[in-house]
Deep mutational scan, measured.
Amino acid sequence: SDLEELEKFAKTFKQRRIKLGFTQGDVGLAMGKLYGNDFSQTTISRFEALNLSFKNMCKLKPLLEKWLNDAESSP
């Protein structure tokens, strides 16, 4: 289901973010620079904790996926 997908992604996202050495705040700032939407550390934290509305989670997921792919592919 969509919800299970989101839960899986949130977990994976957190693990990969930590492995890359980024804080939640770093992610929020980087996404602001890249996509012009500033995200607070709290928002990233709540995403990882599945603590946002389903609609908000769905809106954030593609942006976070893109950020993660970019972060992992940059030298």
Results as ranks from 00 to 15, higher is better:
F47G: 00
N51D: 12
M57E: 01
K61I: 06
A71N: 15
S45T: 10
L63C: 10
Q41M: 09
G21S: 02
N56V: 07
N69P: 03
E5S: 14
K66C: 08
S45V: 08
N56A: 13
P62A: 05
P75E: 11
K59N: 11
I44H: 00
K61E: 03
Q41I: 08
C58D: 10
M57V: 04
A71G: 05
N51R: 12
D70I: 11
C58M: 12
W67A: 02
S53R: 07
K55H: 06
N69D: 14
A71Y: 03
S53G: 13
M57H: 01
F47K: 00
I18C: 06
N69M: 12
S74E: 05
I18G: 04
Q41L: 06
C58Q: 15
L68C: 05
K55E: 13
N37E: 12
N51A: 11
A49R: 10
N51W: 03
K66D: 13
L60E: 00
L52W: 04
P75F: 05
K66H: 07
D70F: 09
N37Q: 09
M57N: 05
W67F: 12
R46T: 05
N69L: 08
E65K: 14
S53A: 06
N56D: 13
P62K: 10
L29Q: 13
R46C: 03
K55N: 05
E48A: 01
L63S: 09
E65T: 06
Q41R: 12
S73H: 11
S74N: 06
S45G: 10
C58N: 12
S45I: 06
E48D: 00
L50Y: 08
L29G: 09
K61L: 04
D70N: 08
D70Q: 12
L68W: 02
L64A: 04
D70G: 12
E65S: 07
L60T: 10
S73P: 08
L29W: 06
G25C: 15
L64E: 00
N37F: 06
E72S: 07
A71S: 09
L60D: 02
A49P: 03
K11W: 02
G21Q: 02
P62D: 04
K59W: 06
Q15A: 15
F47M: 03
K59S: 10
P62T: 05
L64M: 07
K66L: 08
E65A: 08
K55F: 10
L50T: 12
L52Q: 04
S45H: 07
A49M: 04
S53M: 02
K11H: 15
K66N: 11
S73T: 09
C58W: 14
F54G: 09
E48M: 01
A10L: 00
I44E: 01
R17H: 02
K55R: 11
E72L: 05
W67C: 03
E72G: 07
L64S: 01
Q24S: 08
S45L: 06
K61V: 08
M57F: 04
L60K: 07
C58E: 10
